[in-house]
């Protein structure tokens, strides 16, 4: 039977974990992505100054950390993070606790999405801004981010739907949500009908999140009018 309370809470918990962790992950991933762009140096080291070297080292280190975090399977990260989560949230179970590993898993992913979005900005426009005497900060705030906005929004739609997928695994640490319901009822108790309902609800939620992101991107893109 369709249990409104069960699924209602499931949806709310899923959305809470998804949106909460996406928001926090962006607070980390966005600056990280920008930093990856800003510290990128020409490959050729012949004319390097000290500043070039410092930037290059930062770039390589950040890139490495990002890749390492992205290569850890989320289920393992979830378990591995338990002591750290307990330290931050006070407990390792529940939806709020699940947000911690979700953020750690999503932030590097978001950083790479942001990096690739910003890379799409026309080099000529950046050069024009430099010719007008724009500082690096001004180029980031007034050129890179606004010009990359549509692409960043598409990236965020991808991020939020991927994170929604991650939240399904939060059931392992008692995080709740639709994924948790699917595993507990559908898998452990062989209640296929409940499994199917969670599946359909998940599909609908992902569709909505994706569609909202794409529409926002389209509205905000002044290149096609």
């Amino acid at each position: 039977m369709f249990d409104f309370e069960l699924f209602g809470w499931g949806i709310l918990e899923s959305l809470y974990m998804t949106l909460g962790s996406t928001a926090i992950a962006y607070l980390i991933g966005l600056p990280l992505g920008i930093l990856l762009i800003v510290t990128e140096q020409p490959r050729d080291t012949a004319n390097y100054t000290t500043k070039n070297w410092i930037f290059r080292i930062i770039h390589v280190v950040l890139g490495f950390i990002t890749n390492v975090l992205r290569s850890i399977p989320f289920v393992i990260l979830l378990v591995f993070m338990i002591p750290i989560t307990r330290g931050i949230v006070g407990t390792a179970t529940g939806s709020t606790a699940a947000i911690v590993p979700l953020v750690v898993g999503a932030a590097p992913y978001i950083a790479r999405l942001v990096e690739s979005s910003i890379k799409e900005v026309d080099k000529g426009v950046i050069e024009a801004a430099r010719s007008m005497g724009a500082s690096t900060g001004q180029i980031i705030w007034k050129v890179l981010l606004p010009e990359a906005k549509p692409s960043l929004l598409i990236g965020s739609a991808i991020a939020v739907t991927t994170i929604f997928g991650y939240t399904a695994m939060a059931g392992f640490v008692g995080g709740g949500g639709l994924g948790d319901i699917g595993i507990r009822y559908g898998f452990h108790r062989y209640q296929t009908d409940i499994m199917i309902v969670t599946l359909i609800l998940s599909i609908i939620i992902v569709q909505i999140l994706q569609e909202v992101g794409m529409r926002l991107a389209k509205i905000n893109d002044k290149r096609i009018n």
Binding site: V125, E127, A128, P146, E147, D221, K222
Partner: peptide, 10 residues
């Protein structure tokens, strides 16, 4: 510039 290099979102 040859390619104008205007900010496309402004």
């Amino acid at each position: 510039f040859q390619q104008f290099n205007l900010l496309m979102q402004r």
